[in-house]
Amino acid sequence: MGPIFLIGYRCTGKTSTGKYLADLLNKTFLDTDLVLESTYGTTIAQMVGRHGWAYFRAKETQTLMNLDLKNSPVIATGGGIILAEENRQFLKENGIVVYLYATASVLTDRISKDENNTDRRPDLTRDSLSLETEKMLEIRTPLYQELAGVSIDTEKYTPKAAALEIKAQLDPGSRTEIS
């Protein structure tokens, strides 16, 4: 099994689920947002504030392309990584893509409660959080769905249960009960 890329909007559980999945599969876990921030010594919000969205998206692509895919890691990607055709092609060609999703109302609630959201993640629009989430999902959902080899509704699964379900779908003989 090659690398596993977790895609989805903010607060769908990519990082939490990814850590559990990496442990289950005995693989390394990477988060493209954290790799990018570490590489450039700044938060995404600071980068966007100083240089703009186009600059950030270019650095996001560069970060994705430079990931070490040896040993087939589990990789949580930034929510907008799928916006660039180059990134979508890379994800399709280099691993298994797992789409984590939830409704706009649930995501809005999760984002508003996420301590990392305001400090590290910039607003995507000047709209209210709920309207921004709805607009972004309208644009991004078809792209997420197009890439997905596996899709998991994170309203129905905790991160640990989602990781077990992903493992079961990727390797049907491995289905395990949640403890």
Rank of each mutant, 00 (worst) to 15 (best):
Y55C: 09
L25C: 07
I152S: 01
D123V: 15
R175D: 14
F56C: 07
A84H: 07
A45I: 12
R175F: 06
A161Q: 12
T28Y: 15
V150K: 01
V74P: 02
L147P: 00
L30I: 14
G41H: 03
N117M: 09
S105Q: 11
R121I: 10
I82F: 01
A163F: 04
G8C: 08
R10P: 05
Q46M: 10
S38V: 10
V35N: 00
K19H: 08
A162W: 13
R120F: 14
T15F: 15
T63Y: 07
G49L: 05
P3K: 05
V98Q: 03
I111S: 04
V150A: 04
A162P: 12
T176N: 12
L91Q: 00
E132Y: 06
D171W: 13
D119L: 14
N71F: 08
S130D: 13
T32E: 03
S105L: 13
K160W: 12
K59I: 07
G52E: 03
A22C: 13
L83P: 00
S128R: 10
M1T: 08
V48E: 11
Y40R: 03
L25K: 05
K92S: 13
K14N: 10
I81K: 02
T42V: 12
Q46N: 13
L124T: 11
K70S: 15
T77D: 00
Q169M: 09
A58P: 04
L64Y: 01
S151E: 11
M1H: 04
A84V: 06
M136Q: 08
M47H: 12
G80I: 00
T28C: 15
A104G: 09
T61D: 08
G52I: 03
T77W: 02
Y9H: 06
L21C: 08
M136G: 09
A54I: 03
D153L: 10
R175Q: 15
E132L: 11
K14A: 12
D109Y: 09
P122R: 05
N116L: 10
D123P: 12
Y40S: 01
T42F: 13
S105F: 14
I152C: 02
V74R: 01
E134V: 14
N116D: 11
R175W: 11
E37Y: 01
L170Y: 08
G80S: 00
T15E: 11
I166R: 03
K19S: 03
D114M: 09
E177F: 09
T28N: 15
T133Y: 04
R110D: 13
E146K: 07
M136R: 03
A58W: 07
Y99P: 05
T103K: 15
S16L: 10
S130Q: 11
E138Q: 13
G13P: 07
G2L: 02
N66G: 00
Q62G: 00
L83A: 08
T133H: 06
L170I: 14
P122E: 08
P172F: 10
S179T: 09
K135N: 11
L129R: 08
M65N: 05
